[in-house]
């Protein structure tokens, strides 16, 4: 198992490398003098000279890439001019909040989505199935930012169950209860779409498995229907559900950008949008590379989970 994990980690290196190339190439599309583009409103002559020196901006494209990559490998993601602090510090400060939000949503979408899909498949064409199918359709059609706004209207303004926004730090501040209170609405709003997708796929994975011969064997043994569905069938269906969960993690991480804007959540997504509007290129670049790298590592964890679940995968 350790060997398998190491192998997967090694195979991630070219992917991480590719990610930096892609981000670098996208940023190289910016027309005009890169120094001026990066500095934007902060383009004083001293700054221009400093950034040209630091990032080798007058060097050829390939050399510039390796200077940038080398800097990142030593933990130097550059300096945010709009915030006047190192990019990596800002990203790390914000990442915890995003992780809390996206992580909670991810767990919600996995548990609720799989449960809904299993019930839907087990009661195929029954009322529960129809209800869930409709809810799923609604869930994957509603824009999460609109849903978030409606939740604020109903649950914060009208019913006053939860605070509108005002989450300052994901950790610290008002303690666990306060964080949890702030977390409920954004986490649910963010989870809805992914829950719908997971439910859909779980349903079809379960229908596929329930037709298999080993399900008939379980029934022939006298195994009860609950155990057939939630044990034998779900266990086998998980093999095709887990990769979907890995993809959904990416969607949850993406959707966090909208939800962080709606609920004023102090995460990386909001930071990125602010940075784009302020044309703080280095902050965008650093933030994107950091989050994408974390996502690649998460997907390795998904692969490892898959190999633990399916003995047929050679580790």
């Amino acid at each position: 198992m350790t060997g398998y994990i190491l192998k997967r980690l090694l195979s991630a290196i070219p992917v991480l490398f590719g990610i930096t190339v892609i981000v670098f190439l996208i940023m190289a599309m910016i027309p005009g003098d890169p120094a001026l583009a990066i500095l934007g409103a902060y383009a004083t002559p001293e700054n221009v000279e400093k950034i040209n020196r630091d990032l080798g901006l007058d060097a050829p494209l390939v050399a510039r890439y390796f200077i940038w990559l080398g800097n990142m490998l030593t933990g130097d993601f550059g300096t945010s001019f709009s915030l006047n602090r190192p990019v990596i510090d800002e990203v790390l400060d914000r990442f915890g909040a995003t992780l809390l939000l996206a992580g909670t949503s991810f767990i919600l979408c996995a548990i609720l989505g799989i449960a809904a899909g299993v019930v839907s498949a087990a009661r195929q064409y029954g009322w529960a199935d129809k209800g869930i199918t409709f809810a799923v359709l609604l869930g994957i059609s509603i824009p999460s930012f609109f849903l978030g706004m409606m939740m604020i209207l109903i649950f914060a303004v009208e019913l006053r169950w939860f605070p509108v926004s005002g989450m300052r730090m994901a950790y610290g501040g008002g303690g666990f209860a306060d964080v949890a209170n702030h977390l409920v609405m954004p986490a649910i709003a963010l989870a809805v779409v992914a829950t719908g997708v997971v439910a859909r796929l779980s349903r079809s994975a379960m229908l596929e498995v329930l037709r298999q011969d080993f399900i008939r064997t379980a029934r022939a043994k006298g195994v009860g229907e609950g155990r057939v569905i939630w044990g034998h069938a779900l266990r086998a269906a998980m093999v095709s559900i887990i990769p979907v969960l890995g993809i959904q993690a990416g969607f949850v991480l993406s959707g966090a950008v909208y939800i962080e804007m709606v609920f004023q959540w102090p995460g990386v997504g909001r930071m990125l949008v602010d940075a784009i509007l302020k044309r703080d290129i280095l902050l965008v670049q650093g933030g994107v590379v950091f989050v994408a790298a974390c996502y690649v590592l998460f997907n390795i964890a998904v692969d490892v989970a898959q190999s633990l679940l399916d003995p047929r995968i050679k580790t």
Binding site: G250, F251, S254, V273, V284, A292, Y295
Partner: peptide, 12 residues
């Protein structure tokens, strides 16, 4: 390998 919106944000 990117969460899709990050790529879109980078392009924008």
């Amino acid at each position: 390998a990117f969460p899709y919106i990050l790529l879109a944000l980078a392009i924008v």
